[in-house]
Design a protein around this nucleic acid. Structure first.
Lengths: 249, 249
DNA sequence: GAGTGGTCTAGACCACCAA
DNA sequence: TGGTGGTCTAGACCACTCT
């Protein structure tokens, strides 16, 4: 029978069956699905068709395949990120994070770097400075259980934090600490949120498998004079985070 | 040559080439990529391999394939949604929306419905009422150029808006109008943001093609007494929207 | 070594679109 | 009608994991 079923392609039926089985709890998170060659005989189709069905599940972020072991149901235990928390000075101590939840406590900033760079165009625009103005770029990788789940790129005009350790390339402390020391304490931020599929480089930079989107944040911080003092670009593993915002008029 | 190149699979090379060609501007948004059979001869591989490469592009949300015509580069022209705006009463007039941008003006609420339902568990929890409490459910579909890009499900405890048109099943006006009329004007909201790949039903409910994530909002509105008065679940096409939040401590 | 997923070939027929 | 993508078959060899 070299033809597909009447209207619905065979691989979609198989994908649908598996989808329902997973959502119905027949395969719990972490459980292994039947092997591809087993599904071949079960459905009487070629391996290509089975793999097409499994590709659909993977693209939906429902499963994850590992060569040599099998295809397993993915787990989803998100961490909550409360945006407004970062504006509270008591949150700025080193090692403290804006994450809240059991898992959140295990998320820590690591691999921090800092260097001076000319402001890229979009950053310069957000900071209301000329493109190429010297800014300090501080990068941070946040890990959960060793897996990178967030990468931040934080830009601060060099002139604003002259004389601080950050200006000398010390990436240890949160930029807000240095801005506060310079009398430029951020009092509000504007956050822009997008989501899309990651490029291959981003997929490996975060530890995400195919079928997981990324969240992109662009955070602009303003001081009491309503001047932009910092721009941060954040790349987040969407399967790890729930963003929370408290909105007032 | 029935074998893959040394380390990198052939389909990844092809996908990489095309990826670079698209990002490099060789194929502009809307432009057609070479046909699959043309790529076969160009790279000297089977059609399956070519299709595997194109599947990777599509999963990255970079292209879109249409049977009969071809594979084209996808366009990305997002609309900005400013969360805080909805708390301004002058935004509540019928037909007015919280969207801002040229395209935003073309986004309008349509296909509104309203009916009484028992509160589902998560909704009841957010509203601090018992599960099953009667709530009015107002659904709205927002379209951009005819394409549905947002679906909202808005829950309000019936007891809060008794005597308003909404209580009689009239879905015309924004729920905030009715809440304000009942002396329960929302003054702040909490928004939770997630992103994931859409289920097949969601993919067709919004007009999104494979490779596009969805954004999920859970908005809880509070009145001046800090009581939750409304919960809204929103499903958004992630390729259409940028969410904007103004954050204060 | 047995079993798993990863990659690839060389065909085939179908559904759809545009000229 | 000819070209496009959509689906499918029946094989094959490789890389990896687990026992």
């Amino acid at each position: 029978m070299p033809k597909a079923g009447k209207t619905t392609p065979e691989y979609q039926k198989i994908a649908g069956d598996l989808h329902r089985a997973v959502n119905g709890g027949k395969f719990k998170p972490g459980a292994r699905l039947p092997a591809e060659r087993e599904l071949m005989t079960q459905y009487g189709v070629s391996r290509t068709t089975v793999r097409q069905a499994l590709a659909a599940l993977s693209a939906d972020g429902l499963t994850e395949s590992r060569r040599g072991s099998g295809t397993v149901v993915r787990e989803y235990q998100p961490v909550r990120r409360i945006a407004n928390d970062r504006l509270s000075p008591d949150r700025w101590s080193v090692g403290r994070s804006v994450w809240q939840s059991d898992k959140g406590d295990r998320i820590r900033p690591e691999d921090m770097t800092a260097k001076e760079v000319p402001a890229p165009d979009p950053v310069a625009a957000a900071l209301a400075v000329s493109p190429g103005t010297p800014v300090m770029l501080r990068t941070v990788v946040h890990r959960l259980d060793g897996r990178p789940v967030q990468r931040s790129r934080c830009y601060v005009p060099r002139s604003l934090i002259d004389g601080t350790p950050l200006a000398d390339g010390d990436p240890t402390d949160d930029t807000y600490v240095h801005l506060a020391a310079a009398g430029r304490t951020p009092v509000r931020t504007r956050e822009e949120v997008r989501s899309r599929m990651p490029a291959a480089i981003e997929r490996s930079a975060l530890g995400v498998s195919a079928g997981t989107p990324v969240l992109l944040l662009a955070v602009t911080a303003f001081d009491a004079d309503d001047k932009p003092v910092e721009v941060t670009e954040v790349l987040l593993d969407a399967s790890t985070f729930i963003l929370e915002y408290n909105v007032t008029s």
